[in-house]
């Protein structure tokens, strides 16, 4: 058995040198350094998993634009948006927003569910010299970053796949709004994900898909602008509880201002306020789960 001989050697052949083990630490860690080191770890893991992330993030929106912006117009079943906008134009902000939302939420929820239960490997990170609430913030920032990458990956796909004459009319009309919406949308989703990850039992993860993630994407004003819901008033009001609505509408305001969208205050307020509230709440529940 190789293990046995290897271990024997450790113990007998090679003695543990005193200075290797007990020399005083060369560096005093600081909180920002520790925080950045944890972000560096996330980047390393993302880089390793890039191909699988790429496929996972792109598959759904790619199929969607293919069917709705290419196949359906070709066979004459295409949907027209308001004011003559092509369906592709409506889909771009919606699909980018929904990708950010899903990727950021999942990036927060699933690793956390594992870390808090199976083997409780959260202990590893919790023992790093960082206050536990900052560890929660770090997880939110890392998940938001993955959400943003997810959103950016979707852009080219939804911009370029379409039938002739169905090209989306998209340009960044307002850079500050675009950036604020992208970033707060990702942070909002990540903090919501962290909250769900700390309060939901992993055995019910399937239910989470059915009752949280599915309704959020399907009813998040991804496939139609919120104003188009005037005819279904109850749904228009119910949709206001869906965070993705504000992200989609915010991206519409920034990217396709000609398509009807909410006024700026109406999406910025929930995005920024929601991010602050959810981050505060998620940080608290996370700290309570980690410190027993």
């Amino acid at each position: 058995m190789t293990t046995k001989t290897a271990q024997g050697k450790t113990a007998q052949g090679k003695t543990v040198q005193a200075e290797t083990l007990t020399a005083p630490p060369a560096v005093r860690p600081t909180i920002p350094r520790t925080f950045m080191a944890m972000m560096a770890r996330e980047v390393r893991v993302m880089r390793k998993n890039f191909l699988s992330t790429f496929v996972r993030v792109l598959a759904q929106p790619l199929m969607f634009v293919f069917v709705f912006a290419y196949v359906l117009p070709k066979i004459g079943g295409g949907m027209a948006g308001q004011g003559g906008a092509t369906f592709a134009t409506i889909l771009v902000p919606g699909l980018v927003g929904s990708s950010i939302m899903m990727q950021a939420m999942m990036a927060a929820i699933f690793p956390l569910m594992m870390e808090l239960t199976w083997q409780r490997s959260i202990t590893d990170r919790a023992l790093a010299p960082l206050p536990i609430p900052l560890l929660a913030i770090q997880k939110i920032v890392a998940a938001a970053l993955q959400g943003l990458i997810g959103g950016l990956l979707v852009f080219p796909a939804v911009l370029f796949i379409h039938a002739d004459g169905q090209a989306p009319e998209v340009h960044v009309a307002n850079w500050p709004i675009f950036l604020v919406v992208m970033i707060t949308g990702a942070l909002l989703a990540a903090s919501g994900g962290l909250l769900l990850g700390t309060v939901i039992n992993p055995q019910k993860a399937q239910v989470l898909f059915a009752v949280v993630l599915m309704p959020i994407t399907m009813l998040g004003c991804v496939y139609y602008p919120w104003s188009a819901l005037d005819n279904v008033r109850w749904l228009q009001i119910a949709s206001l509880f869906n965070p993705l609505v504000y992200l989609s509408e915010g991206l519409r305001a920034a990217l396709t201002p000609d398509v009807g969208h909410m006024p700026t205050w109406a999406f910025l307020l929930p995005l920024i306020g929601g991010t602050i509230a959810l981050t505060w709440f998620a940080t608290r529940t996370f700290t309570k789960r980690v410190l027993t």
Binding site: R28, T34, A40, R44, N49, S121, I122, T123, A128
Partner: peptide
């Protein structure tokens, strides 16, 4: 076993060092 499952053995040690400055 609270080792970081997304990292190799080497990276587990490497990042621990970086967490500590």
């Amino acid at each position: 076993n609270t080792l970081d499952n997304d990292l190799t053995a080497f990276e587990n040690l490497e990042f621990r060092g970086r967490y500590f400055g």
